[in-house]
Amino acid sequence: MGQIILYVIRDLVRSRWTLAYTLFYLLVGFGVLLMGRDPARAMVTFLQIVLILTPLMGTLFGIMYYYATRDFQELLLAQPLPRTHVLLGQWVGIALSLGVSLLVGLGTPFVVSGFGVGYSLVAATLLGVGMLLGAIFAGLALSMGLLTDHRIQGFGMALILWLFLAVVYDGLVLALLMILRDYPVEKLALVLTFLNPIDLARILLIMQMDVSALLGYTGAVFREFLGASRGMVASAGALVLWLAIPAILIVWRVRRRDF
C-alpha cells in the first residue's frame, strides 16, 4: 500500500490542479494577512474558507482522480495485492496530497507573517481539521466513484453528497431547530453537529477561538462537552472517526464490484 500512496502523491504533486490549489491558498493566506485585519477576524475568515474549500476540493480531487485513473486501477488490481489496498492506497495518497497543499498553502503565510504566534494552537487545529475534511470528502467521493462507472453519474453523486453535507444538512438543522423552538434543543444541536463532519469541524474550531462567546448559552452546553480538554479530544476523535465511513464504504464496495 505504501508504494501506491507514494506514486499517487508523486503523480498528484506534479498535477497543475494541485499547483493551482496550493497557489490559491497562498494567495488567500497572504491576502487576508496583508489586509492587516485583527488576527481574530482573520482567523474567522480562514475558518470559513477552509470549511468551504477543503470538502469541495476533497470531493473534486477524489472523483476526478478516481475516473482519471480508472484504467490504471485495473492494472494495479491485477497485481498480487489485496483489492482494498489499491483503493485505500489511492485514497490515502489523495488525502495526503491535498493535505500538503493546505499545509504549504496556508501554513506558509501563517509562519512567514508570524501569525502563528499567539494563535498557533488555533492555526494548527485549522490546518489539521482542514486536512481531515479533505480526506473525508476525498474518501466519500471515491466511494461514489466505486458505485458507478458512469462518470457523469459519479460526479453528480459526489457533488450532491458534498452539497448535502455542506449546505442542505445545515438547512435541515435550521428547520428542525425552528420547529422545535419551544423545547430545549441544545443537546439535539450538539448531536446533530456530530453527525456532519463539516459542522463538527466548525464547532471544534469556534470553540478554540474567542468567538465561541457568541454561542452564548448554547455554547455553554457545547463547552460543557467540548470545551474541557477531554471534550476537545473527543470531538477531534469524532472527526477522525469520520474517516471510518469512507473507509468502510470503500472496502465494502471494492470487495464486491467488478473492474
Partner: peptide, 16 residues
C-alpha cells in the same frame, strides 16, 4: 427567534 440556531455561526448556509 431561536437562540440555539447560533450553532450555525460561520456556516456556509448562513453566508448564503
Amino acid at each position: 427567534q431561536v437562540p440555539e440556531t447560533v450553532v450555525l455561526l460561520y456556516s456556509f448556509l448562513i453566508r448564503i
